[in-house]
Amino acid sequence: MHLTSSSGSITPRSRHLLRQTALAVCCAALFAVLAGLVKSGWGPLARFDQGWIEHLHSYARDRTAWTASVQTLSDIGGTITMRTVLGIAAAWLWLIGARVLAVWAVAQTLVGWGALWVLKLSFDRQRPAFPDPVSHAAGPAYPSGHAMASAITFAALVGLFWSQLRRGGRIAACAAAAAAVLAIGWTRTALGVHWPSDVLGGWLAAGVVLGGVTVAVELWRPGALARDIRRVNWRTRPRVQRIVVSTPRPASHDPGFDEAPDHPDGAAGRGPA
């Protein structure tokens, strides 16, 4: 694997690969530390989890309408919804010819689902228990499936359209995605079905999956993700703009004139294969 160009500088693809590797490694290290604290029953973390969950449960128990609205938000942000959204995105990518990107989206969903249950069964952590619960959830607690699935889905969706957004759009997209992920994670503690550390563990596990799957696809098909992103950019442009870009320009009399066509396949006027 070559990380530098012939001039010795790091290529854009290599920078992307290094960033994704760093994301996966850093999240894996933090997840391992948190998992160790959870498994050992570390006092400060256990007291924080217990105090937080008891306070939220007391609030939810006395406010039925508020609790119902939180439950609705939690259901909307559930694992099935998140995986369905990413599955629809993958189907659309496949239909427009961005096949490697579609595989990437499906892999994020499947690897995330598989990793979630491997981790849950490995730690087998008990969920919070109350004599008067306001909500119910089955299965082990650590990590939170809602937190993990929502983080993977929203990060993947932002990543798909990142190159089309200007600075303001990127900030808005990141803020909206972060708010949605935080809200979904918070509902799980507010309903008393997850400890706060479960939610944090879910976010860290999502970072491992996002970075790890991206690195694996990049190594499998070098440069294919970038080409498919250009295809997405091309297909989501307004139609009039695509026609204008595709129209062959008259030959220039300037012998130095050699403008590269703005097209995912590198040829003006040719649609995606």
Rank of each mutant, 00 (worst) to 15 (best):
A173D: 12
Y142E: 09
P128H: 02
W52K: 05
R83S: 09
G201K: 03
L191M: 09
V33E: 09
G51C: 02
S122Y: 03
R235I: 00
L116D: 08
F130P: 11
G8K: 06
W113H: 08
V215E: 01
F48T: 07
S14Y: 07
R239Y: 07
V208A: 04
V33I: 14
V106C: 13
P272Q: 01
A190W: 10
A205Q: 08
P264Y: 00
V158W: 03
V208L: 05
I243C: 12
L34Y: 06
A155N: 09
G212F: 01
S69Y: 08
A177H: 13
Q164R: 15
F48V: 10
R221E: 10
T72D: 03
A22C: 10
Q71N: 15
R239K: 11
A22P: 05
T67I: 12
T4K: 12
D265K: 05
R221C: 10
T79H: 04
C27D: 03
T247R: 14
A273D: 11
S150D: 10
W117Y: 11
A107L: 11
G78Y: 05
S246R: 10
R125P: 02
P248G: 04
R63E: 11
L18P: 07
A149Q: 09
V232P: 08
T109M: 13
A147H: 07
W203C: 07
V208I: 13
A137M: 11
S6P: 02
A180K: 04
G212A: 14
A190Y: 09
L45T: 03
G202N: 10
Q50Y: 04
K120G: 06
L110H: 02
A147D: 06
S74H: 09
A46P: 00
H2I: 03
R13Y: 06
S6T: 13
I171H: 14
D198L: 02
G192W: 01
A147G: 09
W104G: 04
P143S: 07
R15F: 09
P248F: 04
R231G: 11
A35Y: 13
A91P: 00
R249D: 11
E259I: 14
A156E: 00
R235S: 10
A129C: 01
Y142K: 07
A35E: 11
G51I: 02
R239E: 15
G201N: 05
L45G: 04
G211P: 08
T11I: 05
L182H: 06
V181W: 03
L200C: 13
L34R: 06
W52Q: 12
P128R: 02
V232C: 08
V100P: 02
V111S: 04
G97P: 00
A105D: 06
G112E: 01
A28S: 15
A29T: 15
R63D: 15
T79M: 14
A175P: 08
V38P: 12
F154D: 06
T189P: 03
S69H: 14
V70M: 15
R63Y: 07
P255I: 05
V70S: 09
S135N: 12
W234G: 02
R61V: 10
L191P: 07
A24T: 06
P143K: 07
P248L: 02
D262Y: 13
R188E: 10
C26K: 03
A141I: 05
R15C: 09
F257H: 14
R15H: 13
P248R: 03
A105K: 05
Q164P: 05
Q20P: 01
C27V: 02
W186P: 00
Q71F: 13
A98K: 03
A251Y: 05
T4E: 08
R47H: 13
W113V: 03
G223T: 04
